[in-house]
């Protein structure tokens, strides 16, 4: 995960705690999405960024998992095309395994 994003997520978690905060991912690939989920859950596995050794314990969801939570029109406009492009099942499986 981008080092800048790690810093931003860490700042938000420090401010709001991990109870009421989730991370929504939009990654296009299972492995990269799982890596991002792992980073915000148990820390940066590459030990490169601000979350190295910092287990925030945040829950991460891929946007595909939150379809029912999103306005249907907005989802259709912004995400539905990608349902046909990406390997949804593998991505969801990889991300949900880390919660």
């Amino acid at each position: 995960m981008d080092l800048e994003n790690q810093a931003r997520i860490k700042d938000l978690a420090d401010e709001f705690g991990n109870e009421e905060l989730i991370v929504v991912l939009g990654g296009g690939e299972a492995e990269a999405s799982a890596l991002a989920a792992e980073t915000v859950t148990s820390g940066d596995p590459t030990y490169a960024g601000p979350l190295a050794g910092v287990p925030l314990g945040l829950k991460a969801y891929h946007i595909f998992e939150l379809k029912d939570e999103v306005d249907a029109e907005v989802y259709d406009e912004q995400i539905s095309m990608m349902e046909m492009v990406l390997d949804m099942d593998t991505i969801i499986e990889a991300v949900s395994a880390l919660r």
Binding site: G28, E31, A32, L35, M81, M82, M84, V85
Partner: peptide
């Protein structure tokens, strides 16, 4: 972990 970028673009065009 960035996938096949051209292929993803072609899939997006087809899906559109």
């Amino acid at each position: 972990g960035a996938g096949d970028v051209p292929e993803a673009n072609f899939k997006m065009i087809a899906a559109l």
